[in-house]
Design a protein around this nucleic acid. Structure first.
Lengths: 157, 157
DNA sequence: TCGACTTTGTTTCCTTGTCAACAAAATGGC
DNA sequence: GCCATTTTGTTGACAAGGAAACAAAGTCGA
């Protein structure tokens, strides 16, 4: 097998493992909240004026799904929506006090994960970090270009 | 932000992007087949005597989900099940001729993806490949240990 | 060998997300 | 300014996957 395949498959397996493990741990610690809900809360806290469309693009999900998710979070009292005086279409979100509590717990959990994996990262040299970061950025930019090109292609079909 | 966070978030975003892009392309080329179905076919072709449990573990999905998925693939005539004379419990899968056709198309598509991303991988040195592979392997083994430990912990609860 | 425990696959109910159609607001060319 | 187009968020029908309960087969210690 080619090394690029090994890398991609290795990443896939590693990523799935991390997601599975952290999801289990999180839904165990934050009972009553799914990992989707918590990630949504995290994003809203970190990004001012986030709305359905931005959340959907960031999570590679449909607007429909995000719309339902945010409505649920509003019903649960974790986020609230607001609008700006010069735009009656876009609807933005921010955390409520209760939402901030959840975000804080999630943040602590995140630190716990870091602690759990510290041994692995301690072995990584600065050069390795930079090398991986540069790879990720290059690849990501490349795919953005592909997506952009494809977007144009789709219109012409 | 710490570099380890940058790396992890970079990988997460990159991975989501790849999955989204390839999924779209695949379900466009292989109309009538979802990416889950195709991945299931791929796994069965590559792993002799695969069964529901092995598929579930490999995909980090429940056995229930895989059970339904394989039943659908059997109905579609893409895979068939068989048993061994000394075990009346385990049920294995293999591809039918039609399944192999789909697998072949998927394989070609995979080569197309490689071609699409060739430019990125050409810039990666042998050392970078090895460094990333070693990181992935170390991290993966570390998480396996965590999962194993957690498994024991759960029993004791 | 027998009975308790484990493993394997299936089923039912429920949640989550997609798809496609839609309404309302914003935008842009003329 | 007006009308066609685009953007934004929502909805309902549907499909995919998870959780839990289950039956049937296998395993293993006494």
């Amino acid at each position: 097998m080619k090394k690029e395949d090994q890398v991609l498959m290795g990443f896939r397996d590693l990523y799935n493992k991390i997601v599975w493990l952290n999801k289990n741990k999180m839904e165990d610690s934050l009972k009553g909240y799914t990992s989707s809900e918590v990630h949504c809360i995290e994003y809203i806290e970190k990004n001012a004026d986030s709305n359905v469309t931005k959340l959907a693009e960031s999570f590679y999900m449909t607007r429909g799904a995000i719309s339902k998710l945010t409505q649920k979070l509003i019903k649960k009292g974790l986020i609230e929506s607001y609008q700006k005086s010069d735009n009656k279409k876009e609807i933005y979100f921010r955390l409520t006090a209760q939402g901030k509590v959840i975000d804080k717990i999630h943040e602590d959990l995140h630190k716990e994960f870091q602690e759990r994996d510290k041994a692995v990262f301690e072995q990584v040299t600065e050069e390795q970090f930079d090398s991986m970061l540069s790879f990720v950025e290059k690849y990501s930019r490349h795919l953005d270009a592909v997506i952009k090109k494809q977007g144009l292609d789709m219109k012409s079909e």
